Simulated scan of single mutants.
Amino acid sequence: MILSRSLKAFGSEGFAQVLKEEVSGLGSGVLPLQQGLRTGSNSLDGGLEIMVLRSKEAPAILRVRIGIFYQSIVAGCACADDPTPVNENTEYCEVDVEIDRRDGRARFNLVDDGSSENSEA
């Protein structure tokens, strides 16, 4: 994924809003939402809410930590007598976003108790 608008807006007052807009449309195909689950078994892509927690500038990379609120479900067997209700659960995870300053290519790393998993687009 290329975050060219976010790269261009870095350092301006509108940076957080631009980053939120670009990231909120990505979904679990790019973001490590499935890996960040705490309650459900399947992450849902719609309705992502993004918070910019901090940002740091390096010569080659912009590093931004974001918090993501999203929804999940506990998937049942879909049988007629399945007692598992399909309720949406609110999930939260933190993700480090590294944006290459040359071309805007972004890498997303799930923050998990001091370790991280990579998801590059």
Results as ranks from 00 to 15, higher is better:
I61Q: 07
D82G: 04
V74L: 13
S43Q: 05
S12A: 14
L53T: 05
L7A: 03
E91F: 06
S72A: 15
V86Q: 13
S72I: 08
N87M: 10
F108T: 02
S41W: 00
D113E: 09
R65F: 03
N89Y: 14
N42S: 09
D103N: 15
E117M: 07
P32L: 12
C79M: 08
M1K: 03
F15I: 03
L44D: 10
A60P: 00
L33I: 02
F10P: 00
E98G: 06
A60W: 02
R105W: 08
D113L: 08
T39A: 06
E57C: 01
G67Q: 00
N89L: 02
K8I: 12
S24H: 09
V23A: 02
V18D: 06
E21G: 13
G14V: 05
S12N: 11
I73R: 12
S115E: 11
I66R: 04
R101V: 08
F69M: 12
D113I: 00
N118Y: 04
D45R: 05
E88G: 06
L110W: 05
L110M: 06
F69H: 14
A121F: 11
L110T: 04
L26M: 14
L19R: 09
D96S: 07
G14N: 15
E91Q: 05
G40E: 10
G14R: 14
G25N: 06
R105V: 12
G104K: 08
D100H: 04
C77N: 10
A58S: 06
D103G: 12
E88M: 13
R105H: 06
F10M: 09
P83I: 08
F10S: 10
I66Q: 04
D103P: 02
G25Q: 12
E13G: 14
L3P: 03
V23T: 02
F108Y: 15
P59T: 10
N118A: 13
L7F: 07
L33R: 01
G36Q: 08
Q17N: 11
L31N: 06
R54P: 00
L26Y: 01
Q71P: 00
S4C: 05
E57A: 06
L3Y: 11
E21L: 11
R63T: 13
R54I: 01
L3I: 10
F15Q: 01
R101Y: 06
F10V: 14
R38K: 15
A60R: 11
L37W: 02
I73M: 08
I61H: 03
V95C: 01
A60N: 07
L31C: 05
L48H: 00
E21V: 12
V18M: 05
A9T: 05
L37D: 01
V74N: 04
A16T: 04
S115V: 07
E22Q: 01
E91D: 05
D100S: 06
R38L: 15
K56S: 14
F108C: 02
Q35P: 00
I2N: 08
G76N: 06
T39I: 13
